[in-house]
Design a protein around this nucleic acid. Sequence first.
DNA 1: ATAGAAAATCGTACGCGTACAAAATTTTTT
DNA 2: AAAAAATTTTGTACGCGTACGATTTTCTAT
Lengths: 214, 214
Amino acid sequence: MPITVQTRRERQKAELRSELVAAAHALVKEEGYEGLTIRKLAKRVGYAPMSVYSYFADKQEILIALAEDAFAQLAERAGRNQPAEPLDALRHGMREFAAFGRENPNEYRTIFMTPKAHEHDAETAAELEKNNPALLSMRNCVLACLEAGLLKGDEHAITTFLWTTVHGAISAMITFPQYSFGDHKHYAETVIELALTAVRTEGAGPLTAGAKSC
Amino acid sequence: MPITVQTRRERQKAELRSELVAAAHALVKEEGYEGLTIRKLAKRVGYAPMSVYSYFADKQEILIALAEDAFAQLAERAGRNQPAEPLDALRHGMREFAAFGRENPNEYRTIFMTPKAHEHDAETAAELEKNNPALLSMRNCVLACLEAGLLKGDEHAITTFLWTTVHGAISAMITFPQYSFGDHKHYAETVIELALTAVRTEGAGPLTAGAKSC
DNA sequence: ATAGAAAATCGTACGCGTACAAAATTTTTT
DNA sequence: AAAAAATTTTGTACGCGTACGATTTTCTAT
């Protein structure tokens, strides 16, 4: 089997692909998000514009690659400083998620507000959604809370409700920056607490320690 | 004052504008949403492509005009069959809002998931957001519920929370149609009930009549 | 009626994403 | 080593949104 040849090829291809991603990053840094153009990107790496399409099916895939990098950073950041108390850990994750959306609206938009042009088969598309590090970490926190008896209901239902709710707040603030949310960070906090209220067990008391800070 | 002349001019301009909107509607009906093109639209009404820009600042404005028509229909539909009981009326409005998003993803996306390119001044932009009929009707329902002592908290805060939460569910289902929401209508229902749970007064009991149907 | 101002309409051109097919290159087979 | 097959790269071209400036039409003031 020519596995060495095969893999070398793939590795080279992957290298060129990440070279393109790096160039895309640089381009965005220098000229802003809307300055990222297939033609400019190609020129920068010495390719013909159409050659980019050997590595990305379309422009959206480039944007997704950039956004996935950003989300990986989010996951790393959220992993640090994670409180031991399960409910506070959940809160922490939700807060980081909201902060990320505030600080990275372009990346947030490409992942969470843009229809996936390449839905492959239905199966793959569903996997992709579940592979978002932010969502995965949230699911784990929910699980821990359920085991601690702090939340009531189905794990998947709770997780889904929590992320779509926070997502609603984030995306609304991105789309309508002028709407009277008040301070955006504060509104995100409010939404998080209200959402948790809806899924908390009855006897849990109004607020745990984590809710007061920030 | 040449008010007759002035107004006649404006009226003519408005007529041409709505002729364009009508043509846009027809175009979308015939060729689908992505078939709506400035060039095609101009050709259809016998204009040069650039002439369209006398009536719309850019393509987005055309899309917004289409979407506003759709949202007006939503308001009309939601106005009918409105339950007398305030909380059920609120539920009704939220349901209609969710159903609208499900049935009109393109229009929903235009209004709620696309950054407004023409933010005019900040003031006008904020006004526009508050002029959405669906949101206005929701605000009224919230007000009625507050007067009836069914909800707790600030009117604006509650309204904002409710719409961003439902919006989160709708937009998530639009962006990730393959995610395991289960039945979309059912998930919307779940989110509505959970969101209401978070803002309901304590003694209101688990569910009113409206929650069981549907 | 006519000159001047204002507004509406249009022609041209740019950069964009990308479909398509030819060309160049690399890999596999003989 | 040579031929064939596969893959990568590129040239060309299309339709798109729209910036800019010229042109035509409409209104206003004399």
